[in-house]
Simulated assay, not measured.
Amino acid sequence: MEDLLRLLPTIRRTRGNRLYAADGSRILDLWMDDGRGILGERDKATRTWAANAADKGLVHPYPGLYERRFEKAVLTTWPELGSVRVFLSEERALDSAARILGSATVPAESPCRDAEGKPAHGPGTLVLLRPFTVLPAGVTLALLRLPCPRPFAPACLAVRDSRMLDDCPGDLVPSLLLAAAARGLASIEVATTNGYGEDHWKRFDRFTAPFFDRNGPYLFARIERSRYEEFYRAALSGGALVSPDYDKPSIVPPDFDDGELKKLAKALDGVRSDR
């Protein structure tokens, strides 16, 4: 993944879901740090909450007021869930998931790329659960992809049945992280109210449907795995950053214009899959 990201020019600054490079180019970000930046410019509120928490000195892992607020925000976003635990790092969350499931596991994408013979998600599966998706039937444990900039995002496990977490206390994390993540989840609801939904996502299809399979806001390149680097390079030449990982989705951004999509479609036309 890092090898493909290094193909980017030097990024001078970002604004919403656009990257501004030192060479003067502008890039439409369809990766958004694997969904952490799905809010685009709306994550300004998240950063503001993080700054306010820092001003209060809430940068140390002490018990705080935001633990219940964060849990409420998670359960509002994914009402099928029953309980959550937070961790200082994704590695610690995965270690706890392995103890709960009885073996080490790599989070399965949901939604995921369609493929014949794809194993069904089941009780022993750890799913990476993203905004605008629901926990698949039969799955009991999820690692959440929070809509929050990476420096402010705690790792989080969630379950349907809270009893699964009886022996998993999680970590104490700085209240700054919980405040920022709770604000990010609240902003998802605001984004939906302001039009980030199916009608917006369909607008993206007008020019790009031949090149992506879309599930909600999530996009999977319609190309063979062996040709994905070619697809990635073509997208970059067309002014867009797609997911650097074949198995992880790109994302319809909150803001785009027809000119950007036409340029991307023209660049991808040369690597169009025959399937």
Rank of each mutant, 00 (worst) to 15 (best):
R130Y: 00
R130F: 00
V134H: 12
V134L: 05
V134F: 03
L135Q: 04
P136G: 05
A137T: 14
A137C: 06
G138E: 11
G138F: 08
G138S: 07
V139K: 01
V139A: 08
T140K: 06
L141Y: 04
A142D: 02
A142W: 00
L143Y: 00
L143G: 04
L144K: 03
R145S: 10
L146F: 07
C148P: 08
R150H: 08
R150S: 12
P151V: 03
F152M: 06
F152W: 13
F152Q: 09
A153S: 15
A153V: 12
P154Y: 08
L157V: 07
A158M: 06
A158P: 05
V159W: 00
V159I: 04
V159T: 08
R160G: 01
D161A: 04
S162R: 13
S162E: 13
L165T: 13
L165M: 12
L165N: 11
D166T: 13
C168T: 15
P169V: 14
P169I: 13
P169A: 10
G170D: 09
D171C: 11
D171H: 12
D171W: 08
D171V: 11
D171K: 06
D171R: 10
D171T: 03
L172D: 13
L172K: 10
L172N: 12
V173L: 05
V173G: 11
V173Y: 09
P174Q: 05
S175Y: 03
L176E: 13
L178T: 15
L178I: 14
A179G: 12
A179Y: 06
A181S: 15
R183F: 03
R183D: 14
G184M: 08
S187K: 07
S187E: 15
I188M: 14
E189K: 07
V190H: 05
V190Q: 11
A191R: 04
A191E: 08
T192F: 01
T192D: 03
T192R: 11
T193C: 02
G195S: 03
G195A: 07
G195W: 12
Y196W: 11
Y196D: 10
G197Q: 10
G197L: 06
H200L: 15
H200M: 10
K202A: 14
K202P: 01
F204N: 02
F204W: 15
F204Q: 02
F207C: 14
F207A: 15
F207E: 15
T208F: 00
A209G: 08
F211A: 03
R214F: 01
R214D: 07
R214T: 10
N215S: 11
G216A: 03
P217L: 03
P217I: 07
Y218P: 03
Y218E: 00
L219C: 06
L219E: 08
L219K: 02
A221H: 06
R222W: 06
E224A: 15
E224N: 11
R225M: 13
R227H: 14
Y228G: 05
E229A: 14
E230Y: 00
E230H: 13
F231G: 02
